[in-house]
Computed example of a mutant assay.
Amino acid sequence: MEQFNIPEHYDVMADLDRDVHDDIELSRSEAALAVSLIQESTGSIPRSVFLPCFGTGRHIVPLFKLGVKKITGVDLSATCIKKALTHLTRLNGGNIVQLTLADLRSWYTNEEFDAVLLLGNSFADIIDPSQLTLFTAGMLRSLKSGGVFVMDYIGERYLERCRTARQSTWHAVLNGVPVLDCRVPKYDSEHRVLQIDVRVEALETHELVWTGFYQKLILTPTELIQRFGARSVELQHIGLADELNPYYSAVDSKHPLHAIHGGDLGMLQESDWWVGRKMK
């Protein structure tokens, strides 16, 4: 099965999904949830955090404001990193940030971190199980013994949308053009891959502006626990995103993101949150 081009996809999403990336309240709520889960596990705020697949870096400033002192991030998208660097102008002195364009499957550091946060439903973008094993190893290698891993993951829960072919349509802007962003999910049961087909049309003329797709390898909870256990991380399911974070479920709120999406936040709203601690 064809693997979608991850860096090219996120280069486009940095612009097309700007309503998500620029929503400061959303980013604050996710960062606060992640840090609270770490505190519940360790009793303290992590001083150093590794952000694999940090995207546009929208969680960096909120994490520092919550007490994190040092952040290291790795991402495949040059466009996302460029946008992430703009967030750093909002930081005060004393914060340490290092952002790198690299592939986690081959990236290596001698540093160790108190926590690893994988947010934005980035896990299982790589649909080849053996390559996903390399990605997972690269992501967890630098987590300290006793350190905490937190992620959101869109697993089996989203498959109901595939069965009904439920389309999500949002108003957006791409390359300065007002557009309709239409996304339809489907599921390949043979390869166990969720695929979202994206069609972007000009709002006024309905001419095609961009088309693409992205994917997630769908693993069962048992498979996730075994996969992370093989890397000495005891993974536990914490709960559903819209039950843990009030922002996701505030359908009737006046938050800009909810207004734009009509209460349908897609994968953000329907992901599962997981926490794991690296065994000593």
Rank of each mutant, 00 (worst) to 15 (best):
I218M: 06
L203H: 13
T222K: 12
G229W: 03
Q226L: 13
G229V: 03
L224A: 04
H237Y: 04
Q236H: 14
L224R: 02
W210E: 08
H206S: 10
A241H: 11
Q236N: 15
A230T: 13
E204G: 04
L240I: 11
G212P: 10
F228M: 10
Q236K: 13
T222C: 12
N245A: 02
G212Y: 11
L219F: 11
T211S: 08
T211F: 06
L208F: 09
E207N: 05
A230I: 12
N245I: 02
I225L: 12
L219C: 11
H206F: 08
I238W: 02
S232Y: 01
Q215W: 03
R231H: 15
L203W: 09
K216G: 10
L219A: 06
D242H: 14
E207C: 12
T222Y: 12
I225E: 15
K216D: 11
Q226E: 09
L235I: 07
G239Y: 06
L203P: 08
T211P: 04
A230P: 07
E223I: 09
I238D: 01
P221E: 02
Q226T: 10
F228G: 11
L240F: 09
L203C: 09
G239V: 04
D242C: 13
L240H: 09
T211R: 07
K216M: 10
L235M: 04
E204M: 11
Q236V: 08
